[in-house]
Simulated scan of single mutants.
Amino acid sequence: MSKTHNLNRLAYFAAVVETGSFTKAADRLGVTKAVVSSQVTQLEQELKATLLVRNTRKVSATGAGRLFYTRCTSILNQAEEAFSEMSQLSEHPVGVLRMTAPHDYGTAVIAPLVARFRRQYPDCQVELYLGDDHSDLMAGDLDLAIRIGWLRDSTLLARKMGGFRQLLVGASFGQFDHIRHPDDLADRPFIANKALSDPLQWVFQSASGDTVSARLQSDLSIDSAPAIMAAVKEGAGLAILPDYLVRDHLMSGTLTKVLPEWRLPEGGIFVVLPASKFRAAKVSVFTEMLRQTERARVQ
């Protein structure tokens, strides 16, 4: 008679390998460290093999552990797809929707959208992680990621939700009448966005199609777009910011658009999904809500 194994232990083991820590695995799974350790120990006893090497700083897989982890992830991914397929049959999204988004876009657009999503689908919980690093969707156990700008090559599935304009803005009380050409910006205080690879080099395009490459000067650098906007409002200098962040401030008059007849490169707004045949209803519905939000925003 064959022995019945507790397949739940595969998820505990995989979480430890992916996070490199019993504590982090426990946090991801919502259980105690002792439970994770006990489940992995029992798994090793069942297999009569050492799967993990434990030290004071990190937990890593043995050769046998790496081989077993490959098989585990295949099984767990198939199980997740099976649950995702079944969840599509549900009329309303259910379960936990886990996603990540950049700080500025996440605060300005995604957080309000999440609130509407929760009101409309109270049986679905949401975990939103804000950060400008490109989180690993598989290792981070995420359902989707919002990416802003220009995507690098990826094996993941990317769907464009919309786009945004970059705008040169200044404080409403600033004097900008004499700025009529990008060359006029050379001696103007500018706040650089340190999150960009080259925050001082910009290409402007006129209505007639002429392009001008401008190298700006900056004595103030900040790595957060909302913080840059706050500094601009206080008169610290000009800055280039996305339209979704400054739109309300331009309408209220706290910020003003500089060189409005010149355009800067536009960026895209994408939903990035793990490669999978099936999409859970919670993912499909939220993605469509974001698409509609972007469509309404640019009108």
Rank of each mutant, 00 (worst) to 15 (best):
H181S: 06
S37D: 05
R28Q: 13
Q175N: 13
L29Q: 08
P274M: 13
K48N: 08
T23F: 08
Q175E: 14
T73F: 10
V272H: 15
I222P: 03
Y69T: 09
A192W: 14
R279T: 01
V271G: 01
A64D: 14
L200D: 09
F13A: 01
Q292C: 13
H103Y: 07
T4R: 14
A280M: 03
F204C: 03
G163E: 13
P112H: 00
E234L: 02
D141K: 03
D219L: 15
A227T: 08
Q125S: 04
H5C: 10
S90D: 10
G20C: 15
L29M: 07
P260F: 13
F83G: 03
L52Y: 13
A195D: 05
N193T: 10
S135D: 12
S38T: 01
T211R: 04
A26H: 04
V272L: 12
L241C: 01
T50P: 13
D248P: 08
S276I: 00
A139M: 06
P182S: 06
Q201W: 05
S154I: 07
G253K: 00
I269Y: 10
A239C: 02
R71E: 15
G235I: 06
A82G: 07
I222C: 04
V246P: 07
G65S: 13
F286M: 03
I75A: 11
G106C: 08
T19P: 06
E127H: 09
S224K: 00
N8S: 08
G149K: 13
S221P: 02
R188T: 11
V94M: 12
M1A: 10
V246L: 03
H181D: 07
A64E: 14
V53W: 07
A49D: 12
K233M: 04
L259D: 00
T62V: 15
